[in-house]
Design a protein around this nucleic acid. Structure first.
Lengths: 247, 247
DNA sequence: ACCTGAACACCGTTCAAGT
DNA sequence: ACCTGAACACCGTTCAAGT
């Protein structure tokens, strides 16, 4: 989406595939992993089929043969790939709460490995196809063990999936691609000003020390460089405690 | 993002501004509200400066004079506009839990009025500037009333903001713009197949009745046409109960 | 079956020029 | 001060053609 004022040189191109594949050598897995590399490199906004193709050394239209569905179809495949190792083992299900807790932390760890995939999973219904059914079944099993049934089970399930995705999506929300430093500076001073306004925002002013730079809305880096670890732990603990109590 | 195979006719153009503004009549508010209309109509992917300009009857480059920052800058303004009436009144803060509950429900209501703004608020660090500081201060006040202090206050605040945004972002996650009907059909039958696989996904199969079409990953409509009301209620109740208990 | 190559209808942004 | 107008470097997708 950032176009026109940024010429991408050939020299900056991806070296994902070190050599151009021969005819018939290009596989679906190659395309998807090159796409993940492109996402890691350029973010969701910057992600383009043409760049993926360029990184493999092939024409844009060649991708379509291996991965139908165009840009969104390819991103859905990438989502699957990132989600592949999130689901905890079955045997951890002896304790339903521990299993769900493991799920939350594993989801976050996966997104930390591929920060730009967070908005993909958190904000695109299309890529929800990327969520493994084993994960779905695991959540349901855990909630049944907790005592949830029928309509309440569905509600609990929806709450769990949303909770899993929610914090991390916001934590890793992408910064603007262009002029990152200038944007950060502008935001930092804006926060500094707001935080010192004791009459309008007293609670904010009282707690500025603890908040500036490490709280949503009041930060100028995303969760990649400034993780909100302890906030996430409280979030998970509170949610799980509430889930146990609400039955 | 959906380009090339969909010609947008002049006749389908926005009627936001019924007549072309005279020179000097174009205001910042006009641009931002036209942009919101464009977002409502075309979604975040389809949102384009050129369409906004077209809907006002002005050249794309004219927008820049009133709203600097290009596409992302304009979207940040739109985010502010949508968030403007979310923050509950101060006097509801007698009960901190009721205030936070009101906040959650008001946020969801605002996003239901503008479903395509949900991914904007939930997944873009840029648009976090759109969150009113009164909201921030209100959350802090509520958490102080609950007994949260210092580092724990910051963690609680982060948890609250994430919880506010999390469910709704996923609930209203956009469907693919192109071929919506075909996509929904494909997904529906995919869900039907998965749900009947009793050996691989027993918990899923047991509860298929309650889940198909109204649970994350297992649905083919977004929250605009198929809201997940009761799931949201449980989510909020569980989170708030946990927040109270974790101190 | 698998990929090239050209064409099409879009983008956001930049810069010079008009009033 | 406010906007037009042309140009530039990108997009995703479609379709015909090659091997």
């Amino acid at each position: 989406m950032t176009r026109g004022y940024l010429q991408v040189h050939w020299s900056a191109m991806a070296k994902t595939a070190s050599r151009k594949p021969q005819r018939g050598e290009l596989t679906r897995e190659m395309v998807v992993s090159a796409a993940l590399a492109c996402l890691d490199r350029s973010g969701l906004e910057g992600f383009s089929l043409r760049e993926v193709a360029r990184s493999i050394g092939v024409f844009p239209t060649a991708l379509r043969w291996h991965v139908p569905g165009g840009r969104n179809g390819l991103l859905a495949e990438v989502a699957s790939l990132v989600m592949a190792e999130v689901t905890p083992d079955r045997d951890a299900a002896a304790d339903w709460r521990a299993w769900l807790e493991a799920l939350f932390f594993r989801y976050r760890a996966a997104m930390q490995r591929h920060p730009n995939a967070a908005s993909l999973l958190g904000a695109q219904l299309v890529s929800n196809g990327g969520v493994p059914m084993a994960l779905v079944d695991g959540v349901l099993t855990a909630l049944e063990a907790a005592g949830y049934r029928e309509g309440a089970l569905r509600d609990g399930y929806n709450a769990v999936i949303a909770a899993m995705v929610g914090f991390v999506t916001l934590e890793l929300a992408p910064e603007p691609a262009e002029d990152q430093a200038g944007w950060a500076d502008a935001l930092r001073s804006r926060v500094a000003n707001t935080v010192s306004d004791e009459t309008r925002y007293p609670a904010l002013a009282r707690n500025a020390r603890w908040l500036s730079g490490s709280a949503f809305v009041l930060r100028w880096e995303n969760g990649r460089s400034a993780p909100l670890e302890s906030g996430f732990r409280l979030y998970v603990a509170a949610f799980l405690a509430g889930l146990a109590a609400k039955l």
